[in-house]
Amino acid sequence: MAMRPRVLSWPGPLSALRPVLRHWSESFFFDEVPMLRITQALAMVQNAILALSAMALFALPLITAYDVTLRYLFHAPTIWATEISIYLLQFAVFMTPGALLADGNHLRVSFWIETRTGLTRRIAETVTALAILPYAAILIWFGTSYTLRAFDRGMLSPTLLQVPLWIAYALIPLGGALLVLGVVLKSLTLWGEQDKAEARA
């Protein structure tokens, strides 16, 4: 099962790498404070997306019940219930993978990685997070061209609602961008907590 990154102990042989990595993180971020701020800002964005998605998904049963009631009792179903529900679902599914990644909520096969400890574990966790970047890049690049195409041609949904399709399509590249932020946030958390632990030590 997915797990939250936690403060891990340093293993013997790999501890040689420790000063190098510490130097890297220091020289890149100069010190702990701005890094913490970045982490907090990223976490806030992801939490806001998660809250919006929760509202979107909570609306689904309400919309469904409303539509069923209108159809069954008044023989007058809405023309929008199903279509709007699908957009709400797309929002929740395409926009949240980054937030789930940062929180360690994605399901994964963890029998190998959970036998690792210390720096190996951290490196492994970082590599599995970075491995996602090519997928995020595909979502951003091809999702953007797909969205722009729909925008340029003024494409509308083939329903009575006639919703501009670029709005729905844009969720894919936006979700890809949030996924990149999720990778960044997860990496910062992984390496940032160690810095705090060292600062305390």
Partner: peptide, 18 residues
């Protein structure tokens, strides 16, 4: 699809999506 839905509305029926 758009066309069948418009026809149904014009005819006074209630289009249902499923």
């Amino acid at each position: 699809g758009l066309d069948a839905t418009q026809l149904l509305s014009t005819l006074g029926a209630s289009p249902v999506t499923m």
